[in-house]
Amino acid sequence: MTVVTGRTFKIRRARRRTVDVLLFVLIILVAVASAFPLVWMVLSSLKTPAESMQTPPVWLPGSPSLAVYGEVASVIDAGRSFWNSAVIATTATAGILVTSLMAGYAFAKYRFFGRDLLFAVLISTMFLPPIVTLIPLYRMVSAMELNASLIGVILPNLANAFGIFLMRQFIAGIPDDLIDAARVDGASELRIVFSVVAPSIIPAIAALALFAFVYHWNTYLWPLTILQGNTENYPIVISLSRLLSYNRGALNTNLVMAGATLAVLPPLVLFVFLQRFFVDSIVSAGVKG
Rank of each mutant, 00 (worst) to 15 (best):
M1G: 15
G6F: 06
T8F: 06
T8R: 12
K10C: 03
I11W: 02
I11D: 04
A14W: 08
R16T: 07
L23F: 08
V32N: 10
V32D: 10
S34Q: 14
L38G: 15
V39L: 15
W40K: 14
W40Y: 14
V42F: 14
S44I: 04
S45I: 07
L46E: 07
A50T: 13
V58Q: 02
W59G: 10
L60R: 03
P61E: 11
G62V: 06
G62H: 12
S65Q: 02
S65A: 09
Y69L: 08
E71V: 02
S74D: 10
F82S: 11
F82A: 09
F82C: 09
W83H: 00
T91Y: 02
T91Q: 01
A92T: 15
I96T: 14
T99C: 13
L101I: 13
A103P: 06
G104S: 12
A106Q: 12
A108P: 08
K109C: 02
F112L: 13
F112I: 11
G114L: 05
G114F: 06
R115Y: 02
R115F: 04
A120C: 07
I123V: 15
T125I: 11
M126T: 12
M126S: 07
P129R: 12
P129V: 09
T133C: 09
L134Y: 12
I135D: 07
I135W: 09
Y138I: 02
R139T: 14
R139C: 03
M140I: 15
V141R: 02
V141H: 09
S142T: 12
A143F: 05
A143T: 08
A143N: 11
E145P: 03
S149C: 01
G152H: 01
L158I: 10
I164V: 13
I164L: 00
L166P: 06
M167R: 10
R168D: 11
Q169L: 06
D177Y: 00
I179V: 12
I179P: 01
D180Y: 02
D180N: 08
R183W: 08
I192C: 00
V193W: 05
S195P: 09
S195R: 15
V196L: 08
A198K: 02
P199A: 08
S200C: 12
I201E: 00
I202G: 08
I202N: 10
P203F: 10
P203D: 00
A204L: 09
I205M: 14
A206V: 14
L208D: 04
F211P: 01
A212W: 08
Y215P: 02
Y215F: 11
T219D: 14
Y220C: 09
W222T: 07
T225D: 01
I226E: 03
I226P: 01
Q228G: 09
N230Y: 11
N233L: 02
I236W: 04
L240D: 06
L243H: 00
L244I: 13
G249D: 05
G249V: 03
A250V: 09
N252Y: 15
V256F: 10
V256T: 01
M257G: 07
P266W: 02
P267A: 11
L268V: 15
L268E: 04
L268F: 15
F271H: 07
F271P: 04
L274F: 12
R276Q: 13
F277W: 12
F278N: 11
D280H: 06
S284L: 13
S284P: 08
